[in-house]
Design a protein around this nucleic acid. Structure first.
Lengths: 160, 160
DNA sequence: CTCAAACCTGATGGATCCAGTCGGAAATCA
DNA sequence: TGATTTCCGACTGGATCCATCAGGTTTGAG
């Protein structure tokens, strides 16, 4: 760890590997806020952007991905807004993050059908990346939106 | 623009979240190659760069991180090169990748001691990111370099 | 019908960081 | 001494991504 002085540079998200972008962060915060505020009527984007202190125009574009994935429903017009397409306890966080960030692919050789790497079969390293990918998916899918939307309750993790 | 692919340009890694950079890829390939070629004498960087078809100058800078982390030993001068600092079955891939890519931090609020996020305690989402981080670390540490250096043997995964 | 609120789309700029190169200094062996 | 190889710092070009803005479309309320 000799180079590890970190230099304290700002720029969020600068440090660390295996990182999600702000798309993932903002999108998740939107979903949690929506789950808390959704009492049947659509909740406007402007309202959520204010509560969570997020840039409205940018959030608009992020939420589009969630809508296309069928995770939220939108209602246009006056008094329109967004609603959960399913109950919060049926929304897996893995689905949310895959919609926001695209497929979980720790290394290029796993992209698509795996045809990117010519050494398939003779390459033992691909086992490592596959396992990482599956672990991340499992971790994300072990949470539902309901787990995160309830503020006080500590989460009961299954397994370990 | 940017059309020219020649001289083996690498511009991959475009797609997917939670991705490692080429630092991680090249570094791991270096380690696997070194484990196979290490018979007691130091192996020169140039030799490995040729076998794995990696840019030598860039690899040089990557291997510096492995050296600083105490994962490989270097010998300077003529007939110098690199050796494993420990037997391959005692080298966890998590150590290798942390040395190459820095800490595994899926979201900015987990950086350092966690002081980056002011809502610590009241934020339930941090549980999700923590779990992802731990899952990745576990997956990486469940492999040793020896698992990857043996070419033919398929890896016996514990669990699942 | 008219108006306003909200959603939707596309284009655009700026900052950051990655990937790769280059040249030279220090160290070791023959 | 001279050849070989690691080591170190600086530099650059390009890609990616965050974020914003403007304009258009749809819908519901009065």
């Amino acid at each position: 760890m000799s180079g590890g002085e970190e230099s304290g540079t700002r720029g969020l998200h600068g440090t660390g590997a295996v990182a999600f972008s702000t798309r993932g962060e903002y999108g998740v915060r939107f979903m949690v806020a929506l789950a808390r505020m959704d009492h049947g009527n659509p909740v406007s984007l402007t309202e959520i952007a204010e509560v969570e202190d997020l840039p409205r125009a940018y959030l608009e574009q992020i939420v589009g991905s969630l809508r296309d994935a069928g995770i939220v429903d939108s209602a246009r017009g006056a008094h329109g807004g967004y609603r959960l397409a399913r109950p919060a306890n049926e929304v897996r966080m893995g689905d949310v993050l895959r919609a926001l960030e695209g497929p979980i692919v720790p290394m290029a050789c796993l992209e698509g059908d795996g045809s990117a790497c010519s050494k398939t079969g003779s390459c033992s390293v691909v086992q490592l990346w596959s396992r990482v990918r599956d672990s991340v998916s499992e971790a994300l899918d072990s949470f539902t939106l309901a787990d995160l939307a309830v503020p006080g309750a500590p989460i009961t993790l299954k397994g370990r």
